[in-house]
C-alpha cells in the first residue's frame, strides 16, 4: 500500500435545483463539500442514514452524476468534468456495483452478454476470447460458468448480485464503488456476498468505496470509515477509531441505535429525537445540532471543521467531541 492516493476527493459538492415549472425555487444540497482519499487496495466505508448524500457521492465518483463543484482525482488525473472519451481509459479502472440486483441487470440480455458488456463497449478482446474471459469471471464470483446463456430472471437475488459483481470485475478495475451491495438481499445471502467481496478485495488488491447504511456490515468490510450526515462527513477514521473511540455524537448515536443480536432487551442507548432535516434547508452551523444533546450556541453559528485530533488519522467535525470515553461504556451501561 503506497501513500499516494488512488482517489483524491476535494470539496466535492452536488446541488440539485428544485424546479416548479420553469423557475428554480430552491437547491437540494445533497452533497456539500466532501474531502477524502482512498489509497490503492484500501476499503473506505461511507455510512449514513437516508438523505445523507452517500449514494449521490458514489454516483459522482463514477461520473454518473456531474459534480456541481469540487474535484475528483483518480490515479493522479482530474476527472471531475472529463468527457466520455477522456474518461474511457479510466472507466476500466473505476467500476460500480449497484444495490438492486433486479434493476441492475438488463432483463433482455443473457448473463454472458451482461458480463461481457464492459469488454465490448471498450473494444477489448481478451486473449482466449470474450467467452472464456466471461466464464472465468463467472467462476470467480462463484457461479456456474455453464450458466453463460441464461437470463437474469432465472437467478435468485444473491446470484444476480454475483453477476453484477462479475460485470464490475470484467475490466480488471483498481477501484470499485459498491452502493449498498447487500441491503436488498435476504439475511442468509448477505453474508455470502460480503465474504465474496472481501475475498475478491484481498485476492485482487482492489480498492473499495463501500456505501451502506448498516454500520455492522461496514465494520466487517472496511479499513477506513467515513460517517456522513446531511451531505457532509462528520467523522472519518480507521475502523478501530470509529467503532471503539467515536468522537462525534452522531457516530455514537448511530452505533448505539443498531439492534445487536448479542445484546438482549432494551439496552441503555442514546436516543436521537426527530428525523433527519431536509437537505433543502439544512440547519445553520453544525447540521447535526438540531438532534444533538450537546448543542450549544456556537453550534448554530459556526460550522465545525473536519479536523484530526492529536495529529492522528481520525478527524471529527464537532465543537464538543468525545475524546475520552470509549464507546462500550456508554452503550452497554
Amino acid at each position: 500500500m503506497t501513500d499516494e492516493p488512488l482517489l483524491r476527493v476535494r470539496g466535492l459538492t452536488k446541488h440539485f435545483p428544485v424546479r416548479q415549472g420553469l423557475r428554480a425555487t430552491g437547491l437540494v444540497r445533497a452533497v456539500d463539500g466532501l474531502d477524502f482519499d482512498v489509497r490503492p487496495g484500501e476499503t473506505l466505508g461511507l455510512v449514513g442514514e437516508s438523505g445523507c448524500g452517500k449514494t449521490t457521492t458514489g454516483r459522482m465518483l463514477v461520473r454518473l452524476l456531474e459534480p456541481t463543484s469540487g474535484s475528483i482525482e483518480f490515479a493522479g488525473r482530474d476527472i471531475t468534468h472529463a468527457g466520455r472519451r477522456e474518461l474511457r481509459p479510466l472507466r476500466q479502472e473505476l467500476q460500480i456495483i449497484f444495490q438492486d440486483p433486479y434493476a441492475s441487470l438488463n432483463p433482455r440480455h443473457t448473463v454472458g452478454r451482461i458480463v461481457a458488456m464492459p469488454l465490448q463497449v471498450n473494444g477489448i478482446k481478451p486473449p482466449g476470447g470474450i467467452k472464456a474471459r466471461v466464464q472465468e469471471l463467472l467462476e470467480l464470483v462463484g457461479l456456474n460458468p455453464e450458466h453463460y446463456n441464461r437470463y437474469p430472471h432465472e437467478f435468485s437475488g444473491g446470484q444476480r448480485q454475483r453477476i453484477g459483481i462479475a460485470r464490475a470485475l470484467a475490466l480488471r478495475p483498481k477501484l470499485i464503488v459498491a452502493d449498498e451491495p447487500v441491503s436488498a438481499l435476504d439475511v442468509s445471502i448477505q453474508a455470502q456476498v460480503v465474504n465474496l467481496l472481501r475475498d475478491l478485495q484481498r485476492e485482487l488488491g482492489l480498492a473499495f468505496v463501500f456505501i451502506a447504511h448498516d454500520l455492522a456490515v461496514i465494520r466487517h468490510f472496511c479499513q477506513r470509515v467515513a460517517v456522513m450526515y446531511l451531505g457532509r462527513i462528520v467523522e472519518i477514521g480507521d475502523r478501530e477509531d470509529i467503532y471503539e473511540r467515536p468522537q462525534h455524537p452522531y457516530t455514537r448515536a448511530l452505533l448505539s441505535a443498531i439492534p445487536d443480536v448479542t445484546q438482549l432487551g432494551p439496552a441503555g442507548r442514546i436516543r436521537l429525537t426527530g428525523d433527519v432535516p431536509t437537505p433543502l434547508d439544512p440547519p445553520s452551523g453544525c447540521r447535526f445540532r438540531t438532534r444533538c444533546w450537546k448543542a450549544q450556541d456556537i453550534c448554530a453559528t459556526e460550522e465545525p471543521a473536519l479536523v484530526p485530533r492529536d495529529g492522528g488519522r481520525q478527524a471529527t467535525a464537532c465543537h464538543f467531541p468525545e475524546v475520552a470515553a470509549p464507546i462500550d461504556e456508554e452503550v452497554s451501561s
Partner: peptide, 17 residues
C-alpha cells in the same frame, strides 16, 4: 434511470450501444 443503463454508462458505452 434503471441501474443496468447506468452500469453501461459507467463502463463508457456510447449512444449507439
Amino acid at each position: 434511470e434503471r441501474e443496468f443503463v447506468e452500469a453501461a454508462k459507467a463502463s463508457g458505452a456510447g449512444l449507439g450501444h
